[in-house]
Design a protein around this nucleic acid. Sequence first.
RNA 1: GUGGGCGUAGCUCAAUUUGGUUAGAGCACCAGACUGUGGCUCUGGGGGUUGCGGGUUCAAAUCCCGUCGCCCACCCCA
Length: 433
Amino acid sequence: MSANVESERGFRDILGAEAESLERLVAAARNHFERYGYRPIILPVVEPTDLFARGVGATTDIVEKEMFFVSDGHTHADQLGDLCLRPEGTASAVRAYIDQGFDKSDPLQKFYYSGPMFRNERPQKGRYRQFHQIGAELFGAALPAADAEVIAMLRTYLESVVSAGRFTLRLNSLGCAVCRPEYVRRLKTFLAANRDALCEDCRRRIETNPLRVLDCKNESCRAILREAPHLTDSWCEACKSHFDSLLQRLKTRKVDAEWDQWLVRGLDYYTRTVFEVTAEGLGAQNAVAAGGRYDGLVELLGGVPTPALGFAIGVERLALVTGANSVAPRPKIFLASTSETTRTTAEQWADTLRRELPAVGTSVEVWTDLGGQGLKRQLQQAGKLGCAFTLILGDREVSEGKVILRDMKKSTQEDIELSIESLMRRLRERLGL
RNA sequence: GUGGGCGUAGCUCAAUUUGGUUAGAGCACCAGACUGUGGCUCUGGGGGUUGCGGGUUCAAAUCCCGUCGCCCACCCCA
């Protein structure tokens, strides 16, 4: 046991029902997002650490203590930490957008991506060091209509994969580069004056991230906050009308979303709209998806100023909400054989069936004996696999010009003329294809 | 990074309270009964350095120390 090589903490093998569930959610997202004109972008897993320090924020927990650093094998000691495993996708997408020159040539772009993200945190329910996100980013669109479309796309996707009502979408506006700094300054002053009444975490947040205090669940902190300057009151005219228009549009589009004036997000790059989807049954880590507008990020990373927004979905968490609701199983067929000759025929027939027997949504699953087993074992295997039918290609039958088709559920058998055509015809009938 | 719970066969768990033969059972796996017909039944079989390392003892799965891993929570976030 001790000699075994095991996976690192927080890194795991995903297989079985969970793997199928995750794959299905990604495929469904791809399908859904493309209807809105989004195109795939495949981003590097390794990026310069600086990208996230500048983009996500140098003082955020993600950058300060959750990065996985990568060595390229011949860096000097003073360069260790130059490269990292990406902790999130948005900064990468923005870097790619600028690298490709879209900000200069063709600003309106819609991208989606999916893949692993890495954060060096202590694992718990719904939280892993390698986890998977599906994200979408919309560049070059400043109107509230863009926010509305992105949120609508997220909401309708979630509704398509999880029974309605099991999650809630909340949104808020954090103001912009014009009005937010002034508010943060006033909030900081207020919090500092009430320092003693705040919880330990919030006292720390006054310096690191004062906005996060608004999000504190601690009852005594909440009481203090009722007297605090209101984020809402600080919005400039442009921010206010942007948010009003967004709410109005969500209403007309019948997108179920609720304004939460206390909602803030931890990443530095957000401006104006932020939103978050939470679900029950996830334990403490109840955020399934989150996103917002980041109008300053393209410029911050060296591009020409471009408005943008996006979101990311935590696939493992979404899978926890949707449960392991099984996909309709595809019909399975086992082609049993009793000799080298009949096995060869079975292989050829199996290939033909796989190619020419379509079923609704997917294809049939065809098995042949690969272990040189006796007929008994092959029947056993077919039973365990849950095959609907087993074709018995026995030498005895073949010499009589026939094969046996066994219905595994009913334990009944019928003779079929020895030809792939008659087999296919009969299977189509029996499977109702 | 902090706190709590848990580590015995592939899986689910006994035996730990009170240290005492060779660490058991169910499921799963393999073989046979049934040499060409799955599920059911019966019989037999393989499989363990009790997470790992050290200590106490005539004797440790059991007691002590350390360490690693998993789970849950804090924090943070998808």
